[in-house]
């Protein structure tokens, strides 16, 4: 039985990854999870300089999910290269670094630094964070802007690039096609859905940022639909995510067309869930006599 999956020429031991922003750089969860068992750790977004993020409250619970408006707080690429990369290199797991920026130059600066580090398998370009006012999502909601930044980043990237797409658009396949046309090697979807919560007793917003990105099991059907539509629209591989909490959820995304999957908010609910999903996928493959994980990709019957 072979659980390997390959994206843009990079092979991962299994399709289970961590969704950016929910797992730090793995340090905090290494106490719960054997990182060696994961296909890849996708890091929290890193920018060229430290970002302080948004005021608190930054998180709120909603029915079947949560809202966050962290605002991409990160220590900047210098600290990341000195601390986080050496930490991750101790493990036999793929390293995918999520890159954020306010301008094209910011993204390029980070991508160039990461090019020095051969242990980094792929770069995930965050053009879809709904919680920062400049950059990020501004590049991810218009097809021509997405095309331009993808092309620019691709020029400087030493590793294959994954464009992380926003679901907060009219037609995600239009965005996916633009990224593919500009040279993206893979796609990640979906980022969080923009939401809002109001505390009716205090008559205030639950988040200081007013709006936040919704994640968790409640968004899963939307994410599965978008992965399916996108897989039909492009040839490049997809990392599927959005509300995955167990192996069946993961397989649903793979059948819809994802070559790998990421677990996000559920890490907060069950810190062991990534490892449990790896085991669960293996059990599923055994139960249904699936020889290669890749046989399941996009294998939903039409």
């Amino acid at each position: 039985m072979n659980m390997q999956t390959t994206l843009a020429g990079v092979t991962f031991k299994n399709p289970v990854m961590t969704a950016s922003g929910t797992f730090g750089s793995g340090m905090e969860y290494a106490e719960f999870v054997d990182l060696n068992k994961l296909g890849a750790v996708v890091t929290k977004g890193v920018a060229n300089v430290p970002w302080p993020g948004n005021p608190t409250p930054r998180v709120a619970e909603v029915y079947g999910g949560m809202l966050n408006a962290i605002g991409l707080q990160n220590p900047g690429i210098d600290v990341f290269m000195e601390r986080d990369i050496p930490f991750l290199k101790q493990y036999d797991t793929g390293i995918i670094v999520n890159v954020c920026g306010k301008t094209v130059e910011d993204y390029v600066a980070v991508v160039e630094r990461l090019g020095e580090e051969s242990a980094v398998s792929m770069l995930e370009i965050n053009v879809s964070c709904p919680n920062v006012k400049e950059g990020a999502i501004a590049f991810g909601q218009k097809a021509d802007a997405l095309f331009d930044i993808t092309r620019e980043v691709k020029k400087y990237a030493k590793q294959p690039i994954i464009m992380k797409l926003s679901p907060n658009v009219t037609d995600i396949t239009e965005m996916a096609r633009a990224a593919e046309a500009a040279g993206a090697d893979a796609l990640s979807l979906i980022n969080t859905l923009t939401g809002m919560k109001i505390d009716v007793h205090k008559r205030t917003f639950a988040l200081a940022n007013k709006t936040g990105g919704m994640s968790g099991p409640a968004i899963k059907p939307i994410a599965v639909r978008m992965v399916y539509q996108t897989a039909k629209a492009v040839k490049i591989p997809i990392i599927g995510m959005g509300g995955i909490s167990n192996a069946e959820d993961a397989i649903e995304f793979i059948l819809a067309g994802a070559s790998a999957i990421s677990v996000g908010a559920m890490n907060f609910v069950n810190p062991y869930c990534t490892m449990e999903i790896v085991q669960g996928i293996e059990d599923y493959m055994r139960r249904y006599n699936v020889e290669n994980l890749t046989d399941l990709i996009g294998a939903v019957q039409e």
């Binding site: 797992f23 929290k44 409250p57 966050n68």
Partner: peptide, 16 residues
């Protein structure tokens, strides 16, 4: 105290 999500330092939700 602050609203928390992960409780273990990963999500950066509960900062001061």
């Amino acid at each position: 105290e602050e609203h928390m999500a992960c409780g273990v330092g990963a999500c950066l939700g509960c900062v001061v």
